[in-house]
Design a protein around this nucleic acid. Sequence first.
RNA 1: GCUGCCAUCGUCUAGCGGUUUAGGACAUCGCCCUCUCAAGGCGGAGGUCACGGGUUCAAAUCCCGUUGGCAGCGCCA
Length: 494
Amino acid sequence: MADVRVRFAPSPTGDLHVGGARTALFNWLFAKNRKGKFILRIEDTDEVRSTEASVKVILDAMKWLQLDWDEGQPDNENLKYSPYYQMERKEKGIYQKYADELVTRKLAYYCYCDPEEVDDIRKKSQINKLPPKYDGRCRYSTLEQREQQKKRGKVPVVRFRMPDTGIVVLNDIIRGKIKFDNFLLDDFVIIKANGTPTYNFACVVDDYLMKITHVLRGDDHISNTPKQMHIYNALNWEMPEFAHLAMILGSDGSRLSKRHGHISVLEYRKEGYLQEALINYLVLLGWSTEDSQQIFTMEDMKQKFSIERCGASPSVFDSAKLLWLNGEKIRSKSSDQIYELFIDWINYTGNDKLIKNWDTELLKKAIFLERDKIKLLKNIPSLVDFFFTKDIDYEEDAIRTVLLSEKSKNVAELVLTKSLIGLSNHQDFSAVSLEKYARHFAMDKNIKTSQVFHPIRVAISGRKQGPSLFHMMEIMGREEVVRRINVTINKFFT
RNA sequence: GCUGCCAUCGUCUAGCGGUUUAGGACAUCGCCCUCUCAAGGCGGAGGUCACGGGUUCAAAUCCCGUUGGCAGCGCCA
């Protein structure tokens, strides 16, 4: 069997959002699984809304997600079917050529109707409870009539001549056979008045020319498919296989959009999600293995992915599960790896003042201690910043309940003053040794271990919560621990 | 309005006619571990498989209908 060739064909009219990313991912996975090619094509035929900036943002998002493409500009040298920007292809006359062929063969025709006129026709049709379609009144216009329109300065569009009867059957890989009544389809525009092809035409021409074997896209395209199939047929072109992926919905059950919060891929990056977490989450929406495996490596996905196991029903985007997966991925990494990821995030977001003058080695150690708590890369600073700030930032609540409450303040003072001396002279500043020391201390004074541990924690970090106390002390070092305890005593107990 | 798609715990899903008292994951609740917070371990609750008809000895699984949700209906893609 010939190698599979799939494509992701975004229109650069905005950010790459999670729905588009999922489509790109599934195409990419399918290509990888079948050792085929993944092509990136930019569908920029909407001259009003397409922007360079969008192209860049989409490309950046694809790169971050590590969905590399085998063909397509601008970062790939393999340009066998170039160009991969539709407006550049239009300039080369690629689409016009086939539109002309269809016109010559009377399978398409020039239409001089004004948009307003077409609108009227549709509305009237709808009022009569009929499908809103253009009535094809220009189908039989004579050469003379057309010349007349031209003289009046009118520029025509090219419409495809849809069969009035019969049906077309789409055999979708995911949904099986779907039938469409040709009568319900209208003579859609294939070339706009400005000479640009419309989506349904450019898409078919390019998919054919680029030898695309499988079209994997969102199911909002199902109703476009019969139109496209008619183009293939009219041009006597072999059709690719089609697979329509179920939509990703917001928590209210409607199509994911801005009002459901951030949906742009790059916003997830800014929030501190890992590429692999987003990918892993996305692969779970609409695809599953027989054992309902949840956590995948990229390699794992590539190996197991298949279109046949894609579901037909839409899924709701659940950010809680994404967050869990992100924590899961972070926990599976070494502190060095998390550190690298964190630095990438810092550089990407330009948050470098957040970690100004932080010692790298200390940061790595701190990350190791707090690893299990990191859900997002952006949580790291607030989790470990107390290691780096010279002035202890005491939490109100910690002062009130641990250091100065009626019940605890005497014990706290005793613990701190005694441990100040004890720790100053403590030779082995390892966590194990420190814990031994603290437990003996508690036993000696006949107080609970927690009455020893908690005041020290607050004294050196200013917080009630934090990493394992003795590991924290170990990496802080004796000098700093003693200094902080001393500062705390002076501040609250003199 | 027309057309199409979809329908299993709150959410993502397994399930392709009998092995199912419907399995897993997230979220939620409880217990354990424990110097706090997490993480981890164990356990609980949560589904009349949208509803109604068939087909069959047997249906979440096949067929039809109903309802509901969503999508498309542009010289947007």
